[in-house]
Amino acid sequence: MGQVGKYSGVIPRTYILSHCDFTANLTLTISNVISIEQLKGWYSRDDVVAEWKEVNKEMCLHVHCYVSGPNPVLDIAAEFRYHIFSKELPLVLKSVLHGDSVLFTKHPELTEAVVWVYFHSSSPKYNRMECWGPLKDAAEGREGEQIRGFLTGGKNGSTPAGKLGSRKSLFQALFAFLL
């Protein structure tokens, strides 16, 4: 059932961005029927799932990325997956802006909505929520007033993993590729 009022037709609204490993094609699915609660098992893939939420009478875009789970083998790739999701998030947000351009034409103020990114991981180091600022800035890769590592993980605005390029990171990247 949709919301009545200014944001009628916005909530519920869910985005699923999938990619094909063989063709590198991206597919954006937009639904005003599916909610994140109905997407059991989405986290077993490399999809990025986002949904609009109203928090304190303000619209926010909540983005969910699966970094690692209960399988200890996947924890080895957690650092690599965290960095990939962080690096590619602006592309994800640009896809949402482009793919749902009718919504943003009707509600241009939604480009000012704050983007909250949830990195889901069984590792406390990567299980975190980050504020990426207004959607229009986050889609351009501008950090602006980002609050990195808001709930758990990084301290003093740092990212948890440091630089990608250590021997450990290269091993993790190779291992993730082979999975």
Score class of each variant (00 low, 15 high):
Trp116Ile: 11
Glu79Thr: 00
Gly141Pro: 10
Lys40Val: 13
Asn127Asp: 11
His19Gly: 15
Val73Ala: 10
Ser8His: 06
Trp132Asp: 03
Val92Arg: 13
Asp137Glu: 13
Ser122Ala: 02
Val102Pro: 02
Pro160Gly: 11
Arg81Pro: 00
Ala173Gly: 02
Lys40Trp: 05
Leu103Val: 12
Thr111Trp: 00
Gln3Ser: 12
Phe85Lys: 11
Glu51Asp: 09
Ser121Ile: 01
Ser95Gly: 15
Val114Arg: 12
Glu112Cys: 04
Glu37Met: 03
Gly162Tyr: 04
Gly2Tyr: 04
Glu58Asp: 15
Ile34His: 14
Ile34Ala: 13
Cys65Lys: 06
Gln3Trp: 05
Pro160Gln: 10
Ser122Tyr: 01
Lys53Gln: 08
Pro90Ala: 09
Leu164Asn: 02
His62Thr: 09
Cys65Leu: 08
Leu89Arg: 08
Thr29Arg: 15
Lys125Asp: 00
Val67Thr: 12
Gly149Ile: 04
Gly5Met: 08
Asn71Val: 01
Val10Met: 07
Glu51Pro: 00
Pro134Asn: 03
Ala173Ser: 06
Glu88Ser: 15
Ser44Gln: 14
Glu88Trp: 14
Gly141Ala: 07
Thr27Tyr: 10
Ala24Met: 08
Phe104Ala: 06
Tyr15Asn: 11
Leu174Trp: 15
Phe80Tyr: 12
Pro90Glu: 14
Asn25Thr: 08
Lys163Phe: 01
Leu164His: 06
Leu110Gly: 11
Arg148Phe: 06
Asp100Cys: 08
Leu164Cys: 09
Gly141Ile: 07
Ala77Ile: 01
Leu74Val: 02
Asp47Lys: 05
Val55His: 08
Ser95Leu: 14
Leu135Arg: 03
Leu135Gly: 05
Val67Leu: 05
His62Leu: 15
Gly153Cys: 08
Arg128Glu: 13
Phe175Ile: 01
Tyr15Trp: 10
Ser123Asp: 04
Val92Ile: 12
Leu17Lys: 11
Gly133Gln: 03
Arg167Thr: 07
Lys155Phe: 08
Gly162Asp: 06
Leu91Ala: 15
Leu89Gly: 06
Ile84Asn: 12
